[in-house]
Design a protein around this nucleic acid. Structure first.
Length: 271
DNA sequence: ATGCTAACCTGCGCGC
DNA sequence: TGCGCGCAGGTTAGCA
């Protein structure tokens, strides 16, 4: 999926096609996503007007005139805009909003994502997540305080959505390479200065990736079906055995919490 | 509480 | 050409 930059790119791509548009109908494939899609919730959308789309972590909140939906793109989901309601459905198109002259389509081969009513319970869940990485609440003092409490690998810590949201496998690897810290380094070994550099690296990488439209790997496309251009900026992710861009050493791979982790032995220290 | 593992699901690329 | 295997952007339930 989409990590934060891809979700944000989707939001920005779809938003102008959503605002002020009236929902004429809603399509649902009938296949279960992570959570069941409620036909009742779909029916309630008919006749409502799209107000705006917000993002919290990797979740999108579609706000309509009378109610709101919460979407998650899982690992393989994306949104696209079709210029006609008579668009040809693709395999794995699971849900769509039919607007007057176009459709917003949710496509998700692996079906790890979901579309549900955004209710009180979800509102509380989202409130319990960690701070947004691009906001002031994600500071070096904050990360240091979190890191001090934990013995876990630093990579696992920054991918923990209760610590900071939006950082997925790609950007976690890239940020740690950037600051020269090994992904297996124990969180509580990081100094205040290490945490400060990590916070800056994450903010920089995530915002640069948003500017470039996210990272296209397999099946992500933005709302306008333009590919993301961040992939060419990746320095370690997916580069096992390739030379390190900084020291020409070999990029290594190991698995941390079931996620592939890439690092340069020469450049990245265990502290 | 903390932290790890399996599971959810499909598609793709690789080696044989 | 075809088959089996491993792997993929995330999250969460369950277990030690």
């Amino acid at each position: 999926m989409p990590e934060l930059p891809e979700v944000e790119t989707s939001r920005l791509g779809v938003l102008p096609h959503f605002e002020g548009e009236v929902v004429c109908d809603v399509f649902y494939s009938g296949l279960n996503l992570r959570y069941p899609v409620s036909t009742q919730v779909n029916d309630q959308l008919k006749g409502q007007t799209g107000v705006t789309i917000d993002r919290r972590a990797k979740y999108l909140i579609m706000r309509f005139s009378e109610s709101s939906l919460l979407l998650h793109l899982g690992m393989s989901g994306h949104l696209r805009v079709e210029d006609s309601v008579d668009f040809i459905k693709k395999k794995h198109d699971h849900w769509a909003l039919y607007l007057k002259n176009k459709a917003l389509v949710y496509h998700d081969p692996r079906r790890f994502g979901f579309v549900v009513q955004y209710d009180e319970a979800w509102c509380k869940k989202l409130a319990q997540l960690g701070p947004e990485p691009l906001e002031a609440g994600f500071s070096s003092a904050y990360l240091y305080q979190q890191a001090q409490k934990s013995q876990r690998a630093i990579k696992a810590l920054i991918m923990d959505q209760a610590v900071v949201v939006g950082v997925g496998n790609i950007y976690a690897n890239e940020a740690l390479f950037e600051i020269g810290v090994h992904p297996m380094a124990k969180s509580n070994k990081l100094s205040v200065s290490d945490c400060g550099r990590l916070v800056v690296a994450l903010k920089t990488i995530l915002s640069d990736a948003i500017k470039l439209g996210g990272t296209t790997l397999r099946d992500f496309v933005s709302g306008h079906a333009q590919p993301g251009y961040f992939k060419q900026s990746l320095k370690v992710y997916g580069r096992e055995s390739a030379p390190c861009v900084r020291c020409q050493g070999e990029v290594r791979k190991l698995v941390i919490q079931q996620r592939a982790s890439f690092y340069c032995e020469g450049c990245q220290s265990l502290l």
